[in-house]
């Protein structure tokens, strides 16, 4: 049988997927063991026990100075920025992308502008954001918005243009106005595509979030990682990275579920 026709069974799928994860863990434990045997104070590859203690310290014990559970306050602060930033970007993406794709005159004005603006590397204007918006929450949220909105605007514009011409003609023969057609034909079909666009842009949203927190913040997941970096605290950094990865995965999973639940006709 050809290789391209061989498929793993149910158990095979789970086992294959788990193997690289288990392997990575085994390699880490072994490497950490070797280093710690040489130098018990090594901080680069802490043992799983040390990592477990660090997790207990940041997640389960209140901070001695503030009384907060650090991991949870960091998570809440970061997720709040992420949700506001991405939510605003999605709203802007929809508000600009739909008319750009649907209305020739609107597109003639704003489409080239959006295309040009989306070429600006957002991190390059981070200093401008801190100057204009101060170093508070607003600058961090704005970095996420500026980083992800251009992609969403262009993506939505493209999705609107991809709607079959026949549908728009048909809606007009049913006597729909531009507004009615936007509301009943275009928007509902674009929303699940917006959710897909948001899923794709979440990766860069996390990037901008952590970059902003690393530079100017007093809490947040990115802030913590860059703070403890000074003490070479790999035992905190590693679980934080795993936690961020898990959050990103869960967000993506949730959005996929939203699409399936709310738009059963989509992607069938």
């Amino acid at each position: 049988m050809r290789l391209l026709n061989r498929r793993p069974g149910n158990i095979g799928v789970v086992a294959s997927a788990a193997t690289p994860f288990v392997l990575a863990l085994v390699v880490y434990v072994a490497a950490s063991g070797v280093r710690l045997a040489e130098n018990p104070d090594d901080k680069l590859l802490p043992s799983l026990v040390t990592v477990g203690e660090a997790i207990e310290r940041v997640a389960l014990t209140p901070d001695r100075r503030t009384g907060d559970y650090i991991l949870w306050t960091d998570t809440a602060a970061s997720l709040k920025r992420l949700f506001i930033g991405v939510g605003l970007a999605a709203a802007v993406g929809l508000a600009v992308g739909v008319p750009n794709g649907l209305l020739p005159w609107f597109g003639a004005f704003f489409s080239p502008w959006v295309r040009a603006m989306s070429m600006i590397p957002p991190l390059a204007i981070l200093p401008i954001l801190f100057i204009v918006f101060g170093i508070g929450e607003l600058a961090k949220v704005m970095l996420i918005v500026l980083g992800t909105a251009p992609f969403l605007m262009r993506d939505i514009e493209q999705r609107v243009r991809e709607l079959p011409r026949e549908q728009l003609v048909k809606a007009q023969t049913l006597d729909g106005t531009t507004w009615q057609i936007t509301l009943r034909v275009v928007l509902p079909q674009v929303l699940p595509r917006l959710v897909d666009g948001v899923r794709l842009s979440l990766g860069s949203a996390w990037l901008f979030l952590i970059a902003a927190e690393a530079i100017a913040s007093t809490d947040g997941l990115g802030y913590r990682i860059f703070l403890v970096r000074r003490y070479l605290s790999m035992d905190v950094i590693l679980p934080y990275v795993v936690w961020i990865t898990l959050l990103a995965f869960l967000l993506d999973f949730a959005l996929r579920r939203v699409n399936r639940r709310c738009f059963p006709w989509y992607g069938v």
């Binding site: 026949e166 048909k170 007009q172 023969t173 006597d175 509902p188 006709w265 989509y266």
Partner: peptide
Amino acid sequence: PEPRADRGVVFQRYSVFPH
């Protein structure tokens, strides 16, 4: 020159709204 309600249309494909 604009589709109006006095003329209905059915195309070979994409005539109905999938959503």
